[in-house]
Design a protein around this nucleic acid. Structure first.
Lengths: 138, 138
DNA sequence: GTAACTGCAAAATATTTGCATCCTT
DNA sequence: AAGGATGCAAATATTTTGCAGTTAC
């Protein structure tokens, strides 16, 4: 069973408001990643652009969502999957961007491969972004 | 021996101009990745902001440089290493961003690990961005 | 009731486009 | 000389900030 949206917010000491609930819902429904513009559109533009910026920023700070690096330099956000299993934090999964439909997937089932760095370099986080065709477009 | 900057430009059907030469030089000297702002600063702001935008865009189109995905959503560019070995194009190397000094390194010596995708997904390109502390900051 | 959140306005940044001039070939 | 490249001005787009009004707890 999963944690309700309101619970996620409360667990992070955030008040339960319309925009936050709606935006989190949107992430849960989508499953994948969303850009700022997607959110504006898909919420029916009922929220101020600024509110969306601030909401996303808050979510990132609290670790509810994270940003995804993309080769085309757009800004994408996705749910941190372990938001439900509170405590442990390891969003170490691969992101896949479809060149055709543009959808971004968080491939939870694909583990991040180990990377060996040269001497003197310390690894904190590894982001892997794979692009190509998704299962719907190929 | 390596190809001169002027030759790189000529090979790509570009006229050899001050801004292009200076910016390519900067990339060669730096070795690592540069943001638009870095270029403005390090060239001593002798070129128009617009010229830099257009130069970078041209270089990306010609495959002389490429963009690097970053988790903090800034725009970074780096030389495509095989610009000299014309033909084959596989900038498959890892990018490392130092959390402390902010420098981005292209770790040519570290191979991109193989990633196995779920059925139906086709891989075209893999980008790996590792963050942490570099050998100067640790 | 109080602190936190939102929306509006506006400022600050970043990026793109048009056009006249200058430089490379 | 001709075409491409640059610089300036200005149009767009994006993101941030301040503040007053509203909402959650």
């Amino acid at each position: 069973m999963h944690t309700s949206i309101a619970d996620i917010l409360k667990q992070n000491q955030l008040s339960v408001t319309g925009s936050r609930t709606k935006i989190l819902e949107l992430f849960q429904q989508t499953g994948g990643a969303l850009a700022h513009a997607d959110i504006e559109l898909k919420t029916g533009e009922q929220f101020d652009r600024v509110t969306i910026y601030r909401t996303l920023q808050t979510f990132v700070e609290k670790g509810i969502i994270h940003t995804i690096p993309t080769a085309d330099n757009s800004v994408l956000y996705a749910l941190c999957k372990d938001q439900c299993s509170e405590g442990h934090h390891h969003d170490n999964h691969i992101h896949f961007i479809c060149d055709d439909c543009g959808t971004t997937y968080c491939l939870e089932q694909v583990a991040i491969p180990e990377v060996r760095l040269p001497n003197g370099f310390t690894k904190k986080q590894t982001d892997v972004v794979v692009s190509g065709l998704c299962n719907k477009c190929s």
